[in-house]
């Protein structure tokens, strides 16, 4: 099926994009297009105007800067997958990137676009939540940051304004004693997650958990945190028992729906297991990351 007719706009600067978003009637932003193009083709979306941001070269970056790992709106999944700084220091991102779809889609799809799409089955939202990350939005009134906690409202719905563009997603650079991981259960290569869990921990000098972040994929109406599990971990020494308790609390916090892939109880059990595994990897990595934010 063909997409309905639309007007195609190709801004080359963020300012130009924002002024288009302000002046056009209900425009849709096209980044990697790996979700949007099929939606347009099946006419699940029928915007009159499409603002294609692929020509805004200034948004094509992925680097550490000022205490953050910053991903511009044109950073593709493959850029994360191939990044050395990610491989060395951001376990959860390094785990998640190669598990997304397939190589062709990772070459086009963007991290920021995936967050803005706000599909509860998307992986990046959970990673952003576990890291207490944020996105930078540009609109006619200027720039603002939206914390991960406040970004996802409903399936495919974010707190982003109609005339705003997410220019960047960023997560704080790891401190000493920090580690993170992402585990995902999917039926086969290329599928969306049936369930996924991102975990991040910071260990103090006494090897107790100082901070914990857990983000869950595909088990609620949005990517969601597991606050009770996080609280339960803080102040404790990592152990298999502790992770089991955290896994149970995360499963309780999740709210999956039964579908053809499994019933809700099964998915809750998987959240439990994936939480334990992700915490295990995160703690292990926390032991090897020796590095300060300022360098």
């Amino acid at each position: 099926m063909k997409a309905a007719q639309f007007e195609h706009h190709e801004p080359t600067t963020v300012d130009e994009a924002v002024s288009l978003l302000e002046s056009l009637d209900e425009p849709t932003i096209l980044a990697g297009g790996q979700s949007l193009v099929p939606m347009l083709r099946f006419r699940l979306a029928r915007p009159d105007t499409v603002v294609d941001i692929n020509g805004i070269d200034s948004l094509d970056y992925l680097h550490e800067d000022n205490g953050y790992l910053k991903m511009g709106a044109l950073a593709r999944h493959a850029d994360v997958e191939d990044s050395e700084v990610v491989a060395d220091h951001y376990g959860s991102l390094a785990d998640a990137a190669p598990l997304i779809a397939d190589p062709q889609i990772r070459n086009r799809g963007t991290v920021v676009g995936s967050m803005a799409q706000a599909d509860p089955k998307g992986d990046w939202g959970s990673v952003l939540l576990a890291h207490d990350g944020e996105v930078v939005a540009r609109g006619p009134a200027g720039e603002r940051t939206i914390p991960a906690d406040q970004l996802f409202l409903l399936p495919y719905d974010t707190s982003l304004g109609e005339d705003e563009l997410i220019t960047e997603a960023r997560v704080p650079a790891p401190v000493d004693g920090e580690g993170s991981a992402y585990h995902k259960l999917k039926r086969k290569t290329g599928d969306y997650a049936m369930a996924g869990v991102a975990a991040r921990v910071v260990l103090d000098d006494d090897r107790r958990i100082e901070e914990a972040g857990i983000g869950m994929t595909a088990v609620d109406i949005t990517n969601a945190r597991a606050p009770e599990a996080e609280d339960h971990l803080v102040g404790e020494r990592p152990s298999a028992d502790l992770f089991e308790e955290a896994g149970e609390l995360a499963a309780e916090a999740s709210n999956p729906e039964s579908d053809e892939h499994g019933d809700a109880a099964y998915k809750e059990r998987m959240v439990d297991v994936l939480t334990q595994r992700a915490l295990g990897d995160a703690v292990e990595r926390a032991g090897v990351v020796k590095r300060r934010v300022t360098q």
């Binding site: 195609h8 297009g33 790996q34 193009v37 099929p38 493959a78 190589p103 062709q104 889609i105 070459n107 086009r108």
Partner: peptide
């Protein structure tokens, strides 16, 4: 780079 030509205009 390999891409799916049905997912791009």
């Amino acid at each position: 780079e390999p891409v799916k030509s049905c997912l791009s205009f």
